[in-house]
Design a protein around this nucleic acid. Sequence first.
RNA 1: GUCCCCAUAGCUUAACGGAUAAAGCAACAGCCUUCGAAGCUGUUGAUGGGGGUUCGAUUCCCUCUGGGGACACCA
Length: 544
Amino acid sequence: MVKDWLYKKIAEEFHGVDFDILTPPEPELGDYSTNLVFALAKRDKQNPADVAKEVIGKLSADRAVSDFFQKIEFAPPGFINFFFNERFLRDNLGEIIKRGDKYGASNLAKGENINLEFVSANPTGPLTVGNARAASFGDTLGNVFKFAGYSVTKEYYINDVGVQVRILGESVAKRFLELKGEKVIFGENLYQGDYVADIAREIQEKKLASAIENDFEALVDFCRDYAVAGLIKSAKESAEKLGVKFDNWFSEKQLHDSGEVKNILSVLEKAGYVYEKDGAKWLKVSEFEKTDDAVLVKSDGSTSYLMNDIAYTNNKFKRGFDKIINIWGADHHGDVARLKAGARALGFEKDKVEILLHQLVLIKKNDELQRMSKRKGDFMLLDDLLAEVGKDAVRFFFLLKDLNTHMEFDIDLAKEQSRKNPVFYIQYATARLNGVFQKYGGEFEPENFCQHSDLLTSPDELRLLSRLVRLPEIIGEVSKNYQVHSLAQYATDLAHAFHRFYESSHIIQEDKKLENARLCLARGAQITLKNTLALMGIAAPEKM
RNA sequence: GUCCCCAUAGCUUAACGGAUAAAGCAACAGCCUUCGAAGCUGUUGAUGGGGGUUCGAUUCCCUCUGGGGACACCA
């Protein structure tokens, strides 16, 4: 990656100074830029122009620098701008075509093993629109990790133990009894959604519970297990419709059955991080984080969510992961410090557990915001949205935005705007590219076609070439800063550069050498776009 | 009451502390006898209020206002 290379180069020449490699606001100003001169001028109390002259002189003398850049110039008040060497851009084009669907991939991470957990919605209802944000983001981040050379497991944690699923079981059981004509009190604390009654009807129609229908507790247990199994299956199907495939569905139940929860509790106790108060056992969170201590074992003897999650975290490390990353909704913000404290109490290093929070998706209805609540049965199903809008538009809609963006999801607006979703702007570029090669008809032969790439000299051709260089750099950055939306921004930028090229430069034409050169560029753009879209889990259609 | 997040163009969003704040949609004006006009070019238009730090602040700090979220022996 040129950007990293340039940074290291400058850092070598001028140590002890803080600087950054930036992208200039206008392409005309160059491909990279550095603010090094601001720092140097201040430190040495010198005029920026003089400092810049010296810096440029030093860098230009370096052969490797001039291989990458043909022009390096000072821009007041204190920037130095770098312009790609056209020869480098053409060489890079050859590299893209050679690497094909591997362009952008690297083994920088050397196989470091990451467990990426996301969505993990309680199996007490179907996936909703709110889950689509974490799903789109997590899946794409995982793809980027893999491309950057990490070994990644995408994981979904199933809370199939505890109060919530027990309430689900009770809800289904009562609907079941209702169907049999019994009068039941269906409290507000039960799950109100229609899907509960659907499951109950299924149980009745298949006569699955006839042996236990007079034993309420047994009925609840059965309904719970039956409903959870069905809802997990439905979550899998919904996720797959969104193009998300998890590598592992991890059941909380197995943590209890295997005795791991108890083991980890005693490990924590032996390490001295647990104390008793008010009949409960508490974790000394405050030894690690500026937060209150939290309960591990409730006074009724059952373990808390936190305790289970600490055992789960331990289980992940036991499976050999070097790093674990959880993507949680912002409503779990308060739990971040507690889980991290638990991991550290077990002796895991601070930065081995990372938790990314995304702001919640709010549903707007009748001009009123409301959180989607599974309990109240008040939500929009992911499946319904996908049926209306389509996978690609849904994914891109979420991927364009920073995780900290608070989103108001107006369903009618989403439907209306789906037609002008920016994803089609990008997909239209892939369709146009396909059209070009179809029109050309012949085989694409890189050896012959790309030997004329020095004919690519127009501003639009060079701009497109310089965009293509960026993909490996974006992937490297996203794999470190998790700013997945910059990949989506890049895709838009790339499509724009292509559309401009396409409009200004006719590809199929009389001059066969120029035609070859432009076909070569078109192929490079096609590969880069396809790879970018593939990372986002979005199709690159040949026709629209 | 305490803590976290957010406020940028009419709308949805970008901008590792850097240059004239960038895109899409909407509006307006142009561009199809050649590869797909779902495109291209141009115009209008924005950093919630007040302080501070800095050579430089949308970005960092304080404060006010307005929104979202969390403050359980629920998960």
